[in-house]
């Protein structure tokens, strides 16, 4: 194989540091924060972000900005693949009024995990619609809460009106192996198509 990594002497030039973004979206209380926490090697950071509302005083530095800002909770975690190559998981705010935050998070992202709860599947519709419109690859991960009816992926696909391409997986966001499987599916689905299988 002819990877950049096989040439240590020129690694710094051939292999600039890179951080890859993955979004974790879904309805209220579906397990986004739990998923990030299960796989992150750092304690997931839960931040209260101060935002300028879109189109209102974004460039206003006159000191009245407090009137046009709002806060939003965002969490993120990190997976180090090696020095200089990281995956970042961002748990995206669920409320519709924070779409503009999604726009920024989604830009340049590798893809998204849409978490779904079969007891209220409709909660993930906005996320599915959003990523479809944006053309950002996503997988749907059905978080199997204890006692929840276990929908099979075919039923979920039909209920979501998905075209049959985006992978649908059942998962338990508290289980590391399960989250790993979701992420590898996303990576394969999102960029693997360009490369030979293996």
């Amino acid at each position: 194989m002819d990877y950049a990594g096989s040439e240590p002497a020129s690694a710094a030039v051939a292999d600039p540091a890179m951080a890859i973004k993955i979004l974790v979206a879904g309805g209220f209380g579906v397990g986004k924060t739990t998923m990030v926490g299960t796989i992150s090697e750092i304690r997931p950071l839960h931040t209260e972000e101060v935002l300028s509302e879109r189109g209102v005083g974004v460039d206003d530095v006159s000191g009245v900005e407090a009137k046009t800002t709002t806060t939003v909770a965002l969490d993120f975690g990190r997976i180090t693949i090696r020095e200089g190559l990281w995956l970042y998981l961002f748990g995206t705010p669920g409320q519709d009024r924070f779409w503009f935050m999604w726009d920024e998070l989604a830009q340049g992202a590798l893809g998204a995990v849409v978490l779904a709860d079969t007891r209220r599947l409709q909660d993930c519709f906005p996320a599915v619609d959003y990523f479809e419109q944006l053309g950002l690859p996503f997988v749907v991960a059905v978080n199997c809460f204890d006692g929840a009816r276990r929908h099979d992926p075919v039923t979920v696909r039909r209920a979501l009106g998905l075209d049959g391409v985006a992978p649908i997986l059942l998962c338990d966001v508290r289980e590391r192996d399960s989250v790993k499987e979701v992420l590898t599916s996303l990576v394969t689905y999102s960029v693997g198509g360009a490369f030979p299988a293996g």
């Binding site: 600039p16 890859i20 992420l183 990576v187 999102s190 360009a194 490369f195």
Partner: peptide
């Protein structure tokens, strides 16, 4: 500070396989 680069343009086959292997070994 790096200019933004879409993941699809920056992830070559080598990076792709590194990420997959890295995830599996977690």
């Amino acid at each position: 500070i790096d200019r933004p680069r879409p993941a699809a343009q920056t992830i070559d086959e080598g990076i792709y396989r590194e990420v997959l292997h890295g995830l599996r070994r977690l």
